[in-house]
């Protein structure tokens, strides 16, 4: 197995120690995305891990310092704000270099430190250019693809803070067409011609710098040049969800989630798959509680399939998503058969 790392250790459920609802984690103060193997010290720099408070926030895709508790538009560019997660930090207005990750600190002049929020690793998975954004299998890199009406495909490369990084070390191709560096160092580009119709499906393979594994596959499906942006901007909102009271009602709800999963796969909206998939998972666990051993085997299969849809939906890999869906579909068929006995 490749090295798995842990950067943050969560110690408690949400706290109410600051004005905003927050929760507590431990991070390396420097290597926030590097490997950590224990609570005490960062394995990269041996610094002591520090306590951090995280808050949900609405921020601007283009202006990451924007931080609002509620949705709205960016005061700078008027773009719609998107949900993110940020770290809280306390600082001294007269000495900004003096910071604390916890509230209650005092500045040298005796005054209380001021609170602000800062961007954090994986706190923002929103596309920055109206495209489709995926997380790489290495858990660090992120890529966003856009397709304009002239048939130019652009691949934006980000780090774990969704900040643009130099793409020169990447090897990528859309289909068989290599993606080449653009004038902006964070972009790889190729003209693939204007799609004959939409949705346009592009299979992009990316080799990441320093990676030992094979290149990763990403399936970009653009409903249209404009629709892609609209879809991704609304992926976070969850529908109302509750567990029906009867077993039949629960099974019916599972079928509804299955239909939603199929619809999302059909449109290639990979990042949203987790919503109906994990809801179906919660539903089948409730059904298992009601109906017991006779549905254990299909319930277990559905739980696995739902989490696999979550995993591979994030990575935008059609082949793996479809493989997970076959398991999902099979589990529902077996569930129906088990209930009929």
């Amino acid at each position: 197995m490749t090295g798995t790392c842990l950067l943050a250790f969560v110690l408690s459920v949400p706290l109410q120690t600051v004005e905003r609802e927050s929760f507590e984690v431990w991070l390396c103060p420097v290597h926030r995305d590097e490997q950590a193997t224990g609570l005490d010290h960062c394995p990269v720099c041996d610094r002591e891990m520090v306590q951090r408070l995280l808050v949900p926030s609405y921020s601007c895709p283009m202006h990451q310092h924007i931080d609002q508790e509620d949705s709205g538009s960016c005061p700078i560019c008027n773009m719609n704000l998107v949900p993110t997660t940020r770290e809280l930090e306390w600082f001294c207005p007269n000495k900004p270099e003096l910071t604390s990750s916890l509230p209650g600190g005092k500045c040298p002049d005796g005054r209380s430190m001021h609170m602000r929020s800062i961007a954090m690793a994986h706190g923002d998975h929103n596309p920055k250019h109206g495209g489709l954004l995926f997380m790489a299998p290495n858990g660090f890199h992120h890529i966003e693809g856009t397709l304009d009406d002239a048939g130019t495909f652009q691949l934006y490369v980000y780090n774990d803070f969704t900040k643009p990084i130099d793409a020169s070390g990447f090897e990528a191709r859309v289909g068989d067409t290599p993606l080449l560096p653009a004038s902006d160092a964070a972009i790889l580009t190729a003209n693939i011609g204007v799609p004959e119709s939409y949705p346009a499906e592009l299979v992009v393979h990316v080799g990441f710098p320093g990676a030992h594994e094979d290149e990763a596959r990403f399936d970009f499906i653009f409903a249209s040049e404009i629709a892609a942006a609209e879809e991704t901007a609304t992926t976070i909102v969850l529908p109302e969800f509750r567990i029906p009271e009867t077993s039949d009602g629960i099974f019916e709800a599972i079928l509804n989630r299955d239909a939603r999963v199929q619809e999302l796969i059909g449109r290639g909206v990979w990042p949203d798959l987790y919503i109906p998939a994990l809801e179906a998972k919660d539903l089948v666990l409730a059904l298992h509680k009601k109906e017991g051993a006779r549905v254990s085997a299909p319930a277990k299969k559905l739980v696995r399939a739902a989490w696999l849809l979550d995993v591979y939906g994030d990575m935008g890999n059609r082949l793996e998503v479809e493989k997970a869906y076959r398991l999902f579909e099979q589990s529902i068929q077996e569930l129906e058969a088990a209930r009929a006995q």
Binding site: C5, Y274, V311
Partner: peptide
């Protein structure tokens, strides 16, 4: 029911073979 923030893209970091849709605590 998890809040919508549970499902936001809070993936604190672990790199590995794959990275799932990470959630809140």
């Amino acid at each position: 029911m998890r809040s919508k923030w549970t499902w936001t893209l809070l993936a604190l970091v672990w790199a590995g073979q794959v990275a799932a849709h990470e959630g809140s605590p």
